[in-house]
Write a protein that binds this DNA or RNA. Structure first.
Length: 282
DNA sequence: AACTGTCCCTGCAAGC
DNA sequence: TGCTTGCAGGGACAGT
């Protein structure tokens, strides 16, 4: 599923293929994809507008538009952005199509494809961020684009209840980590997912901080993770390779690749399937 | 206030 | 073989 590394890979694709182009025409299939506003609002907000930037915070993609508004795209579970030639055959569940022009000639299409329809596409006025985009406004620190230090992590974790994994998954604290990378990060940090965040000392928190940065960066370098069910691909349709480096996710019952002593256990923590090593995560 | 559980939706795979 | 059922998961929202 698209988490920070996959969204970052898509962002880089937007940077290379979409920034600088003008949207000539917009088609919206399923209204659910534009549910935050409406079909008309998306078409009005994007038609004739030039895309100036492609940025990311957590799992949110944000583009500055020359109209002064911003485009937000969230892939959620199964969303994909695909760059295609004009008139190319669209896959099922293509809910938004943007016709892109360079020097006034349409040269490509950007497709938003999303079988499970959890994803969304919206144009918003940055002055109305707090009311129109409360989720984005209250997003926590992004480990790669914001200033993210062990001390900041320590401050965020101070006096927190609940368990460690739930806190990693909470986008209001650290933004961008989902179920797969939470498990991989906790494994690298050698911490059990049910540990209490408020009880971790500064040495342990420094280890967790380093694990967050290392896992996310390595996953980005591998182009993200592509799993069987969602078939995540980048803008050019390329699959990621980080799934081959997963050490716990999807490895329940298998021996731990790190310590070679424990087995990978599968439980439910924070309402999510959770995999961790019985021996080296404590 | 802060945390947990449920729901949304579709495709795939396991099991009868 | 062919159907049914369950599971996957990000984030909003309701409930505790």
């Amino acid at each position: 599923m698209p988490e920070l590394p996959e969204v970052e890979t898509v962002r880089r694709g937007l940077q290379d293929n979409v920034v600088g182009r003008t949207i000539i025409k917009v088609e919206v299939g399923r209204e659910r994809t534009v549910r935050r506003t409406s079909r008309e609002a998306l078409i009005d907000g994007l038609t004739g507008v030039q895309i100036l930037t492609a940025t990311r915070r957590g799992k949110y993609l944000i583009c500055d538009l020359d109209s002064g508004e911003k485009l937000m795209i969230h892939l959620r579970m199964s969303g994909r952005l695909i760059i295609a030639k004009p008139q190319a055959k669209r896959p099922p569940h293509t809910h938004v199509v943007m016709h892109l022009a360079k020097h006034k000639t349409i040269d490509s299409e950007l497709w938003f494809v999303d079988p499970r329809t959890f994803g969304e596409v919206v144009v918003f006025d940055p002055d109305l961020l707090a009311t129109q985009m409360p989720d984005l406004a209250s997003l926590g620190v992004d480990p790669l684009v914001d200033n993210f230090t062990p001390e900041i992590l320590q401050e965020l974790f101070k006096n927190r209840r609940g368990n460690l994994k739930a806190l990693l998954l909470n986008q209001h604290f650290v933004a961008g980590i989902g179920n797969i990378y939470a498990d991989e990060i906790l494994h690298l940090a050698k911490l059990r997912p049910d540990r209490l965040p408020g009880r971790l000392n500064s040495v342990t928190l420094a280890r967790l901080h380093a694990a967050i940065v290392e896992v996310l960066n390595k996953a980005i370098n591998a182009g993200g993770s592509t799993l069987k069910d969602t078939q995540y691909v980048d803008l050019d349709g390329q699959v990621g390779n980080y799934q081959d480096e997963h050490r716990v996710y999807g490895r329940a019952g298998l021996p731990c690749l790190t310590c070679r002593k424990g087995r990978i256990l599968m439980t439910v923590v924070a309402g999510r399937t959770t995999c961790y090593c019985s021996a080296c995560q404590t």
